[in-house]
Nucleic acid binder design. Structure first.
Lengths: 189, 189
DNA sequence: ATCTTTTGATTGACTGACCAATCAATCCAT
DNA sequence: ATGGATTGATTGGTCAGTCAATCAAAAGAT
């Protein structure tokens, strides 16, 4: 791993952590750099500006998520099992860490003013949707797209809600909720 | 209406609009005041600080929402009809305006660092939950709380998602989604 | 009714802090 | 020594919050 890619990774990781602790995008490059153990100037050197750094952090979490989904799907067989896998991944500890959730929430905010952020988020939506549809189709046919929309909405809703519920909602609970909703939809077939 | 309460209302309204157009909480009191047609100093005079102004805007939207729910419930009879009413209100045009959605999303962010904001959001959650449980109970008994949690999560998820989906999701579509989810749960009784 | 006092609304100008971004100067590995 | 990595110092700009001054209208006094 080259020095450059190492620093970039440090800074991206620190960005997510910092957004998580501060709870908003009002994080200074200085704070992020300090957390990464480097000077703020280095942050600008490698990323060119604060926005690019935020975008990189966003892309990073999406890349991680995507890889996890692929991994989980590779180990699953049959539609039902694959659906469970896709749903589970959203709530495994890596993605359900409080700072990751906070960052995710703020990416939604970022998406309101940054075209690139919006594109990234749209990609996530589409990927989730298509994954769900792919394995819903053999089970419920034409109703797959609309049910996928519903399950996707529920996943995001539980995820966002968990950012503020005083009682930390466990990932297992959230997973169970979505799986239950899935079962209801399958029953209605 | 006294001058004071009039100005306060102007400023609160301008705050929501400004958050909506900027898309984040990075709004200056100056911008808000300008939109309200007054000087920034007046904003500080009446609210004491930026945070109080944001909180006031948040409380305002929640008050509106609460009143609408009460109104809708008053005109509904029977559990099923009342459930529909509660669900519908979240997506009527007043609450489904793009700037209101953006503001709402940012209130979630604000709740990460402001105890008062978190309390307000918790109150909303509890109210929604208890409304749903109240009318779910006669239909599905003990399963009411967990189903209410699910429906609440779905409502919030669709709401937040609508903030960024390029294709503007219509309030009717969102309502239909939640009502469909409700029907699935009732079928499973 | 008229003059005076008081109160509250309102603002423009100002400040102190903070921050993104820049850059010239070091550091360090090869 | 050379070139990329790294930084400290600096700058230009922005913004929350303050303050003294102005203005209008209500309240009181005669």
């Amino acid at each position: 791993m080259s020095v450059e890619s190492q620093r970039r990774a440090q800074l991206v990781e620190a960005t997510i952590r910092e957004i998580g602790t501060v709870g908003s995008l009002d994080v200074t490059v200085g704070q992020i750099a300090k957390r990464a153990g480097v000077s703020s100037a280095l942050g600008f050197h490698y990323f060119g500006g604060k926005d690019s750094l935020l975008l990189a952090a966003m892309q990073h979490t999406l890349t991680i998520y995507g890889a996890q989904v692929r991994g989980a799907l590779a180990m699953s067989h049959g539609p039902r099992e694959r659906l469970e896998a896709v749903i589970r991944v959203s709530f495994i500890p890596t993605n359900f860490r409080s700072d990751v959730i906070a960052a995710w929430l703020n990416f939604y905010v970022l998406a309101q003013r940054s075209k690139r952020a919006r594109r990234l988020l749209t990609i996530y939506h589409r990927r989730l949707h298509s994954n769900l549809v792919h394995d819903l189709k053999p089970l419920i046919g034409d109703r797959a797209p609309v049910v996928a929309e519903r399950l996707g909405g529920l996943i995001d809703g539980l995820y966002v809600r968990s950012a503020i519920t005083p009682k930390r909602v466990s990932g297992e609970d959230a997973t169970a909720h979505v799986l239950a909703a899935l079962d209801r939809e399958l029953d209605a077939a």
